[in-house]
Design a protein around this nucleic acid. Structure first.
Lengths: 146, 146
DNA sequence: GTTAGTGATGATACAGAGTATCATGGCGGA
DNA sequence: TCCGCCATGATACTCTGTATCATCACTAAC
């Protein structure tokens, strides 16, 4: 089962629709296999020769897809990537974690141990903070760029 | 010894100058005691009635101050805060970590254990990433906003 | 089939964040 | 005094993201 079909299934399960336009955006993001800005993604969609995709729609659709956990927004770089787990049963019960390469656009979705996450939560709790469900983003240099 | 004098000393040690304009920006940031955007900080500077502070200068000066580890840029929110350790001897030998409140502008600079940082580094190393010296930002809800 | 309602999309305009570039000013050293 | 260098001023621009209203498409009730 391909990625888009899986995504469609997940949306159906949630009682929402993966429309043509939404599919188009998700497909472009999956295929480019990198972290791209909303405007870069708009470009990519428009290169595919369908009717023009306005940036405004891309923002709206990205919000929708993020709500369905099909894409992730990297707040440190203002870019978006397709979730690595669309086709599998992975649920984001823990906050997703990302390694972002400073040199190229590569982003790796990883799993740190729950002990590590707990350690961070404890430090936060010590100063009265409740962590929200947002993700962890750490930047560095990937193996290709070293 | 007050914060600004400490900052001046640190700059002198590095062979650079904390000019009048730079002092003005740093003072405004220290006094507002919150995370503010570059434009908000420009506002704050201009409210003090000196000669007008252009936003462009604020950006340049913030870059300078960040280079001197006197301020931190929070990339998840595009805001800036004064370093909590200007007056002490704390050196940022480890990446600084921040807890950001989603509801108010409060930001807490904290220290997670070095084991926790190592754990994150190990996960990164496993997929070929070298972590850079950037900081860790985690968002949540602070004690006041709960 | 027609009609009305609702959610998705289109279009335009705007606000906010950040950068590029060149001109000007001020200070220290030859 | 003059020169050079760095900091600052000024302007314009790009990129990111939001607000608002109009239109379209699908569904459900009649």
């Amino acid at each position: 089962m391909d990625v888009i079909s899986s995504a469609e299934q997940k949306c159906a399960d949630n009682g929402v629709k993966l429309t043509k336009r939404r599919k188009q955006v998700l497909t472009a993001l999956v295929e480019c296999n990198a972290a791209v800005s909303a405007y870069e993604l708009t470009e990519l969609c428009n290169q595919q020769g369908y009717t023009a995709m306005p940036a405004m729609s891309v923002y709206r659709i990205l919000d929708f897809l993020e709500g369905q956990s099909l894409v992730h927004r990297l707040s440190t770089t203002n870019k978006y990537i397709a979730c690595s787990h669309i086709s599998c049963q992975h649920s984001h019960f823990r906050r997703p974690q990302f390694l972002i390469c400073n040199d190229c656009t590569r982003v790796q979705e990883v799993d740190v141990t729950s002990e590590t996450l707990s350690a961070i939560e404890r430090v936060a709790a010590d100063v009265g903070f409740n962590l929200s469900d947002k993700q962890l983003e750490v930047s560095g240099t990937c193996s290709d760029c070293k």
